[in-house]
C-alpha cells in the first residue's frame, strides 16, 4: 500500500497503568534519537482515568500522513477489557503482547503473555513500573527501536531519584522478552526484525 511500511504499536490498559507514559517514551526514543518519523496519539478524557486507556505510536522512515494507527503491528494489552476493545484492527500477522496476570483470554494465537505486573512487583518491588517492564519487552519484540536509545530516553523523562528503578524495570522487560521464541508462533516474521537488532 505504502512505499515505505509504517509500523504501528498500540498500548492499551486501564488508566493509571502508565500506558501513555510508555508510549511517549517509545515515541521519543524512536523519533528523537533513532531519527525516524513518529506520531504518538492517545485517548483522552474520562476513559483515561480508570477505564480503558489507549495510546498509539506510528513510526515510519518517511513523513507520516495519517497520524493514528490504521493496521496495528503490535498491540500491548495490560487488561482484559482493553484487549477485547482494541484488538479489532490488528494486522493478520500482527503480534499481541499481554500482561499474563491480567489478560486471560487471548483472541489470537499470535500472542505473547508476560507477567509484567508480577515482575514489577517481585523483581523491582513496585507494581508502578509494570509499564516500563512492558515497554522493555515491546521495545525488544517490535525490533523497531534501538534499546540503548530507549533507555536513555526513559531516564531523561522519569522523575529524579527513580532512574535506577525504571532502568531495572526496562531491563527486566527486555530480559523477559528475550526468552520468548517468536519463531514458535504461527506465521512468524521473526527473521525480519532479527536482522535489524
Amino acid at each position: 500500500m505504502n512505499s515505505e511500511p509504517r509500523y504501528e504499536i498500540r498500548f492499551s490498559g486501564s488508566g493509571g497503568q502508565g500506558i501513555i507514559t510508555a508510549a511517549v517514551v517509545l515515541a521519543d526514543a524512536v523519533g528523537t534519537l533513532d531519527g525516524k518519523y513518529v506520531c504518538q496519539t492517545q485517548s483522552y478524557g474520562p476513559e483515561a482515568r480508570g477505564g480503558k486507556s489507549k495510546a498509539e505510536v506510528v513510526m515510519c522512515a518517511e513523513p507520516i500522513d495519517y497520524p493514528k494507527a490504521m493496521q496495528i503491528d503490535l498491540l500491548l494489552s495490560m487488561t482484559q477489557a482493553s484487549c477485547d476493545a482494541y484488538f479489532f484492527d490488528i494486522k493478520p500477522d500482527g503480534l499481541l503482547v499481554v500482561d499474563a496476570g491480567l489478560v486471560e483470554q487471548l483472541p489470537t494465537s499470535r500472542a505473547v503473555a508476560i507477567p509484567f505486573t508480577k515482575i514489577a512487583r517481585k523483581e523491582i518491588g513496585r507494581e508502578l513500573v509494570a509499564n516500563m517492564v512492558a515497554l522493555g519487552a515491546i521495545g525488544y519484540l517490535s525490533g523497531q527501536v534501538n534499546l540503548k536509545n530507549l533507555e536513555k530516553t526513559l531516564l531523561s523523562r522519569v522523575p529524579k531519584g527513580t532512574e535506577n528503578m525504571n532502568r531495572d524495570a526496562l531491563q527486566a522487560g527486555i530480559d523477559e522478552a528475550k526468552k520468548v521464541d517468536l519463531a514458535s508462533l504461527p506465521r512468524s516474521f521473526a527473521n525480519e526484525w532479527e536482522a535489524e537488532v
Binding site: 511517549v24 506520531c39 504518538q40
Partner: peptide, 10 residues
C-alpha cells in the same frame, strides 16, 4: 483541533 493538539511528533 483535538487530534493535532494532542499528537506528538518530532
Amino acid at each position: 483541533d483535538e487530534v493535532v493538539a494532542h499528537t506528538r511528533e518530532c
